[in-house]
Amino acid sequence: MRFLLNISTHANDVELAGPGWEHAAALLRETGFEGFELYPVGGYEFSRIPASLVGGVHLRFFVMLRQIWQNDYQGLLRLFDTDENIRMYYGGSTREAVISCYRDQLELARSFGVPYVVFHPVHYELEYVFNWQPPWTWQETVDLSAEVISEALRESDYEGWVLFENLWWPGNFRLDSTREIDRLLERVNYERCGIVLDTAHVFNKNQDIRTEEEAVSFLLEEVDALGEYRKLIRAVHLCKSLSGQHVRAGMRAPDPFRGAETFWDRFSIALDHVRNIDTHDAFDHGAIAGLFDRISPEHVVFEFSFRSMEEWRSKIDRQVRALGDVFRQGGERNS
């Protein structure tokens, strides 16, 4: 197993990485990790990143895809209020903006020589972020997502793995059953496909979880239910989120967007809510090591949120301790 850390080209992450990414390189050396799964944000000069530091690429998470993919301009205006907002969010107002973004990022992944990219099979809209009652099915989302990624891959020179990541919202790719995997892989026009299992996103499905031990027990049950499909899990986003109480409070909120006058006001409220659902914390309990008795991923990403190098190191240290021999043996195999 290759152990990676997550990083983006958002300003705060870039500042921590250092002007020539020397601080990022030092962090890898000091912690024993092999590289970063990079979330590329537009406007950054990616040539400044040493290719040796990049072990995977997480493709753009647009979240709202149906209306722009169908070139439904009126539907986009309903979501975004103005043409300017649409263009600011997608980089254009037609599906070509989405295709162009993904093809550029696939080319970036090819240029870095990474073995995999991550893609979210998702469609969600702000008005359902709190109540979790979207009027569409997971089948519709899977079909839409398969169209998007297949079109992006067409005429792309990227030849690595495309790994599909689970989310927690109903009406999306949640790994609730192997039928989701079958439907997605049958419709994606690309051979090298697999799964990236996000552990926190599994927890977020279950609002009854109270403790880390309960969370890991639920995770192992969900993974066991996949049976032979577990072999498709080529990467893991390893992090913790115990946010059931926050989710339930959001579901009870009578008017969560009250006072929000613009799309960006609504977007900010929804984003804060999502960050409190998906906290990207570290595991502390050694039970999480049991996950790797069931699966043998090639890549394990410590996917954390952090505001400082001190917070980042603390989360890394906590989760390394929780994994124990799993981390040590992984490092020994790769040395």
Rank of each mutant, 00 (worst) to 15 (best):
D224G: 02
D265H: 13
S243H: 10
S217C: 04
D255V: 02
E221D: 14
M251K: 14
V223P: 15
I277E: 11
V236R: 09
P254D: 06
L242T: 05
R252I: 01
H273P: 02
P256I: 02
K240A: 13
V223S: 14
V216M: 02
H280W: 09
I269Q: 01
V223H: 11
L271P: 00
S217K: 13
I277R: 11
E222Y: 00
D255C: 04
A249G: 05
D265E: 06
I269D: 01
N276E: 07
A260W: 00
K231H: 12
G250C: 12
G244P: 13
E222K: 15
E222W: 02
F263R: 04
D224P: 02
G227E: 13
A282H: 10
R258N: 10
R230T: 13
E222I: 00
V216E: 08
A282G: 02
K231Y: 05
L220T: 10
G244E: 06
L220I: 13
V274C: 03
L226N: 06
W264E: 01
P256D: 05
T279A: 12
R258D: 07
D265R: 08
L271T: 12
V247H: 05
A260M: 08
S243Q: 06
A260H: 01
G244M: 04
A260Y: 00
L232M: 12
S243N: 13
L271V: 01
R266E: 01
A225W: 11
E221G: 04
E213K: 15
V216K: 02
K240Q: 09
